[in-house]
């Protein structure tokens, strides 16, 4: 075991996989010599060589396209898109190509690529360094979408993603790379080293895709969250007197519907939290599933706490961010019914 923050855990996952499998390659903008703008690939080029971890031209469509081609040959590329906000030039390659290659060739070709990309706000990154585009990917048949919320899961899920034979969108909540942010932006941030999830095995292990994690046991209300918002939700619950069951979804698609149903059937109430914009966000899918599966158990309307339906405004970071206060309000609201 070693103590790792999220960046170190991700780095370790790629390091382990570069060691285990000569067909794994790591590439992206600034990931080679420099080690990535968030340092996630630091030291990998030096250790594994120029051909295993390298810089690419600034062309996200190209990065994904060559990763598909490599995957079709038999390699297992793990690529970085510098910010999720910059993944859109690659959208066609992801949606029309990577996601459908297996289907349209009737299993003849497939593209086992992993696309790592930092997402989310809370860093004063303005409109183009703060977005949460997960729902754009969960809407696409053929893509797997994963979002870890701590170092242990980050490493285990990333290894599982790299080993997965289908394309995986691996969204990394950049606000919690160095420590779990609870949404109280005016309080000092505690580093990962103070948290048990920063105990990470140095070697190989996986965290199974498609499985949620129970973050907190409770009986009053189910809170569904992922990424940074797991920690914000936890803070909001701690600040309230409400005994919430908190689920960290970890994989958005395929979703651990069993864990969700079990929890909501127990609590009869559900609050869904995400940082992404509300309309057609992943919360809408969750709400639909919860009512489909748990309608007769529900005692209150499902609440969503999300980012507003605007671009992420630079100056209004904390008015935009769905912080503990808004989550607390939603918890109280569902409890009042």
């Amino acid at each position: 075991m070693a103590q790792m923050n999220m960046i170190q855990a991700l780095n370790s996952a790629m390091d382990v996989m570069l060691d285990r499998d000569p067909d794994v390659l790591v590439f992206g903008e600034d990931v080679g010599y420099f080690g990535g703008v968030f340092r996630a690939t630091e030291g990998l080029q030096k250790k594994h060589g120029l051909k295993r971890c390298f810089d690419t031209p600034i062309g996200e469509g190209g990065i994904i396209a060559v990763a598909i081609g490599m995957g079709a040959y038999g390699l297992r590329p793990c690529v970085e898109i510098q910010f999720a906000d910059y993944i859109y030039p690659a959208f066609d390659q992801l949606v029309s190509e990577a996601a459908r290659l297996r289907y349209r060739s009737a299993g003849d070709f497939w593209a086992p690529l992993t696309v790592r990309t930092p997402y989310g706000g809370g860093i004063f990154g303005g409109q183009t360094h703060s977005q949460s585009p997960e729902a754009l990917f969960t809407h696409v048949a053929g893509l797997t979408t994963v979002i870890p919320s701590n170092p242990y899961d980050a490493k285990g899920l990333l290894i599982a993603a790299i080993e997965n034979d289908d394309p995986v969108i691996f969204l990394e909540p950049k606000r919690i790379y160095n420590g779990p942010f609870d949404g109280h932006h005016d309080r000092p941030v505690s580093p990962w080293s103070k948290h048990p999830e920063s105990e990470v095995p140095e070697g190989y292990y996986t965290v199974e895709l498609g499985k949620a994690a129970q973050v907190r046991e409770g009986k009053d209300v189910t809170v569904l969250a992922y990424g940074t918002m797991v920690h914000v939700a936890k803070a909001a619950v701690d600040d309230s007197k409400i005994d919430a069951d908190i689920l960290d979804l970890r994989t958005l698609l395929p979703l651990d519907i069993g864990a969700i149903v079990k929890s909501v059937q127990k609590t009869g109430r559900c609050v869904i939290v995400h940082e992404a914009t509300r309309t057609s966000g992943f919360g809408a899918e969750l709400a639909a599933l919860v009512q489909e599966h748990c309608f007769y158990h529900l005692e209150a309307p499902i609440e969503r706490v999300t980012g507003w339906d605007t671009p992420y405004p630079h100056a209004f970071e904390w008015d935009y961010f769905p912080g503990p206060k808004r989550i607390g309000d939603a918890l109280r609201k569902v409890m009042e019914v």
Binding site: G126, Q127, T128, P311, H314, A315
Partner: peptide
């Protein structure tokens, strides 16, 4: 990004 910002605090 202040109160006189012509872009109303929206942009980096």
């Amino acid at each position: 990004s202040n109160e006189r910002d012509p872009l109303k605090g929206r942009q980096l």
